[in-house]
Amino acid sequence: MNSVRNNLASTLTDQEVSEIEAEISHLPDRRSAAIDALKIVQKHRGWISDGSLSAIARLLGMSDEELDGIATFYTLIYRKPVGEKVILCCDSVSCWIMGGDKITNKIKSHLNVELGETTEDSKYTLLPVTCLGDCDHAPAMMVGDELHHDLTESNIEEILK
C-alpha cells in the first residue's frame, strides 16, 4: 500500500513541499500556513501520521507539539487512518427533527461500524458533522466530496453500495 508507506516516511514529497510553499508565499510568516499544510499533506496521504506531522512542523519552523495542538483542534484533520471515503453524517437539530438518528443507526448497522470507526474493508469511515447547511432537504450527509440529502432508511443502502 503506497499511502501507508508514504505515511511512515518522515519526509515530505517535492510535490507536497511545493504546494505548501505556494501557500506560504501569500502569508506574512511560515507558521500561518499550518492548517493549509496539514490539509495538503492529508490530501496526498489520507491522514496525518506522527511522521508527517514532524515533517510539516520542521518545514514551518514549529515544534511538533505546537502543530499537534492545531491538528487535533480541527475536526477535518485526521490524526488516525481513515477509509477511502469519510461519511460526514449531520447530527444537528434540523436533521434530528427529520429523523437523523434513524439514518445514522441505519448507516451503522449497514456498514457494521460505530461513529468514529472505519469499515473492515477500509472503504468508509463514519463521523458525525455539524449542520451541513442543507436543512430544507434534511436529513443530509456527505460521502467523500458528495452531498446526499432527503435521506431515508431505504435510500441509504443504494448510496452506500
Binding site: 500561518s32 493549509d36 496539514l38 492545531i70 480541527y74 477535518l76
Partner: peptide, 22 residues
C-alpha cells in the same frame, strides 16, 4: 477551513486564518 463551528466567531476566525487554534 478544517472544521469547527467556533470558526464562525469573528476573532476565532482570524486566529484560524493565521493558522492557529480557533
Amino acid at each position: 477551513s478544517a472544521g469547527r463551528y467556533i470558526c464562525g466567531e469573528e476573532t476565532a476566525l482570524l486566529n484560524s486564518l493565521e493558522g492557529k487554534r480557533a
